[in-house]
């Protein structure tokens, strides 16, 4: 028989104020105006969304800002059903890996515009390679949630 010993409950709560820097401030300012900005590397020509300060391959500054298309292709996705402490949204919700047209990298965001109670239909709509488009939140806070989610393009 295992003997039970006491435990101590210890919750760590810490406050933060993260500096966004020029690049992310400008990127989020764009979202507030329903614009998605990317930055382009003058050396290799790659375009990055969210906007980056420097090219990860070339290590050079990225000064070339572009207004990027709000439509793109879904590379992959998953439906989250499990809860954990501190989740931003309550399950079920879906995450997608999206590459916007004219860019050279993917990023993660929420997927919406789909009825999750009908998984067969959902899978049809969100096959890898499906076309998606940004849907905007009514209320803007100049953060990533200004984009509410990406929805399948009506074909």
């Amino acid at each position: 028989m295992t003997k039970e010993y006491g435990t101590i409950v210890n919750t760590v709560v810490l406050p933060y104020r993260w500096a966004l820097g020029q690049t992310w401030t400008r990127f989020f300012d764009g979202l507030k105006e329903e614009k998605i900005y990317g930055t382009r590397c003058g050396t290799c020509g790659k375009v990055f969304v969210p906007a980056k300060t420097f090219c990860p391959d070339c290590y050079s500054d990225l000064d070339d800002w572009m207004d990027v298309s709000q439509e793109g292709t879904l590379k992959s996705w998953t439906l989250v059903r499990k809860s954990h402490f501190g989740q931003v949204r309550q399950p079920p919700y879906a995450l997608g890996l999206i590459r916007l047209d004219g860019t050279d990298c993917e990023f993660i965001h929420f997927l919406g515009g789909v009825d999750w109670s009908d998984m067969q239909n959902a899978r049809e709509k969100l096959k890898a390679g499906a076309r998606v488009k940004a849907a905007w939140s009514k209320e803007k806070h100049a953060d990533i949630h200004d984009i509410s989610c990406f929805e399948p393009l009506k074909s």
Binding site: R17, W18, A19, L20, T53, Y59
Partner: peptide
Amino acid sequence: RNDVSYPDLVREAVR
């Protein structure tokens, strides 16, 4: 240095 994000701060020293 609230003028830069943390990764950009790091790059300043590395560069």
